[in-house]
Design a protein around this nucleic acid. Structure first.
Lengths: 231, 231
DNA sequence: AAAATTAATTGATATTTATCATCTTAAGAC
DNA sequence: GTCTTAAGATGATAAATATCAATTAATTTT
């Protein structure tokens, strides 16, 4: 009764959020009954900054970019979203507006879970509430780290950080197809697209990476980590 | 039974955290029984990054700077803490280490509340758990905003932001004694101390502010807001 | 109050980084 | 497949910003 996209049930879903382990069968069933699915093509917007934050988002397939739309049309990419992670901005508990935009960078299959469900579970299930705090705290921690890194490091350090982020946390491999344009890598590292191109070339010239347009391979991770450390 | 420093009880404390309103009398009493107080002189460290995160911190008097100690001794000031706000970094729910350092910039009287108390209350009181999420979300929101601002704005915009932050959120007046050195203002806005001096002077020359070393008065807030908007 | 230390200021200069213009290459559209 | 458009690459230049060196206030210590 399921095609290759539709998800039968949260309890059997392989991409289910790990924090759901704190829910009882009944609670998980409650979640299951209050979710809906949708598919997106690359480039499509899944969640729009400023729109009412009525749902949390979970990807079951594909990847998306999470970004803040700043003034004058300048975007700031916060992270790349993948299955298994909750996508719920701080707006959910403050302004009730999405605090960032999420758009698909591959084909995406997504699950929306009503925020009312979360609210209810947080109030009634202490373990779950705590796990929510843990999740949000972990994100906050990364944000702090990222802010300091952006502020204290020069371009090579910032780009090195992004490459290591791709390799270790997104693609789980030292060789990968970036999916982001140079422009977008710049929006992640606070660099002009031309600077991304130039420093990528520098890295290539000094044997740290090899690349062929969208395919990047980290050759000398030690050196890359050194650049990261040095700033 | 109380000198000018000691606090009798959370229920009568004028600086008590507003989220404690979600607690029952018994729960508030529980908090009250598990807190301890301490005083600090300017410059003293109240909470040290990396040390075990066993307590949440509340100021009952005075102000402190909250900062991340980055690599190579470079600090990054996140915010100025004042009474009425909870000071608990994301480390509390993740690494169990303080994720930043807090040090007094005036005489400070502070209240430490064991983190176990919070953990217990979060699990047993859904309203309180929700209010914790709200508090943390609001902080996270600001952090996002700050990160984008630091990345997208040039120095005048960043300094304008800091001045407006001081006036509107810290000193509640357009004229104030900064308390932070030029160096520290730089650590907040990601500028070299010399650049802080120069842009402060620019603002003064164009009639936006007046200043005499540590005392700053905002004359033309409209223009300052314009600089903020323009970036 | 004199001495010593620290912070603020200023000017000169070097570094970092963005912008602009142009060209090339790759990817879609028909 | 050719045309069109978007992305990538490169060099030249300008703008933003940090660093260095020197000087002048402040502040603290003695």
């Amino acid at each position: 009764m399921s095609n290759n996209n539709t998800i039968d049930n949260c309890s059997t879903c392989t991409s289910a959020w790990k924090n759901f382990r704190h829910l009882s069968k009944q609670e998980l069933q409650f979640v299951n009954e209050n979710r809906f699915e949708a598919s997106f093509k690359p480039g499509e917007i899944i969640m729009k900054q400023g729109s009412p934050a009525s749902n949390a988002l979970f990807l079951s397939q594909g990847m998306a970019k999470v970004y803040i739309e700043g003034a004058k049309g300048r975007d700031f990419i916060l992270s790349i979203a993948r299955p298994g992670r909750m996508i719920m901005g701080p707006g959910a508990y403050t302004t009730s507006r999405h605090s960032y935009t999420v758009s698909a960078i591959t084909k995406v299959h997504a699950c929306f879970i009503s925020f009312d469900v979360f609210r209810k579970l947080v109030k009634s299930n202490g373990e779950f509430a705590e796990s929510m705090l843990e999740d949000i705290s972990a994100k906050s921690m990364r944000t702090h780290q990222k802010m300091v890194n952006l502020s204290h490091r020069k371009m090579p350090g910032r780009l090195a950080e992004a490459l290591i982020y791709f390799a270790d946390e997104i693609f789980m491999s030292d060789e990968f197809e970036v999916l982001l344009s140079r422009q977008e890598i710049g929006e992640m590292t606070n660099m002009a697209k031309e600077s991304v191109v130039r420093i990528l070339k520098e890295f290539s010239d000094s044997g740290i990476i090899e690349y062929d347009s969208s395919r990047i391979k980290i050759i000398d991770k030690q050196k890359l980590n050194l650049i990261l450390k040095r700033g």
